[in-house]
């Protein structure tokens, strides 16, 4: 990875996207990279929608806000509508088709995964949808290494949930491999 990644994770409150952003930034630092994670407290953070922004780079990061994302994850219809155009031409867009139906991108390459559904039925609890999503992101982009992701996840989660979260990562990696192989 030698480009700078501007990443936006969008969904609704309670989907764990801020935590997801923190984990991604932490994993990048474990990989020896530079990362900045910020969150919005302005009016746009209200109305039940939730957004986390992370920038990962090999060099120092000046401006900490994401403008047009290189990578967008959307886990709610509102977030999909709000953020789908704020991406670069060659962006990677990951859509949780459990909640986002009929996603029509104007730019970027779209990967559709039933993230929340898989979290509930394959990993065991929808609570870990954010961890499934992180594995999907890493599966597509290699923005951080798999070992760093695992280490960062395990350092942020409550004790006693290690197996659940490891399973969530495995479910995410498997799901995205199937999507990539089918393409």
């Amino acid at each position: 990875m030698d480009k700078e990644w501007e990443i936006r994770l969008g969904g609704t409150g309670g989907q764990g996207l801020i935590t997801g952003g923190i984990i991604l930034a932490e994993a990048a630092i474990l990989d020896g990279k530079v990362a900045v994670q910020s969150q919005s407290y302005g009016p746009e953070s209200r109305g039940g929608s939730s957004k986390a922004e992370v920038i990962i780079s090999n060099d120092e990061i000046d401006y900490m806000k994401v403008k047009d994302a290189d990578l967008l994850l959307v886990m709610s219809p509102e977030a999909a509508k709000k953020y789908k155009d704020e991406v670069k031409e060659d962006a990677i867009i990951i859509v949780d088709t459990t909640y986002v139906k009929d996603f029509e991108a104007t730019k970027g390459k779209v990967y559709e995964v039933k993230i929340s559904h898989l979290a509930r039925h394959e990993a065991g609890r929808e609570l870990v949808a954010n961890i499934v999503a992180l594995a999907v992101i890493v599966g597509v982009t290699n923005v951080v290494s798999r070992s760093a992701l695992e280490q960062a996840v395990l350092s942020r989660i409550p004790k006693g949930t290690e197996e659940l979260n490891k399973k969530a990562m495995a479910v995410g990696f498997k799901a995205i491999e199937e999507v990539l192989n089918a393409a």
């Binding site: 630092i29 990362a35 994670q37 910020s38």
Partner: peptide, 10 residues
């Protein structure tokens, strides 16, 4: 300021 107080980095 709020931005520096709440952002996370290395």
């Amino acid at each position: 300021d709020e931005v520096i107080g709440h952002m996370r980095e290395r």
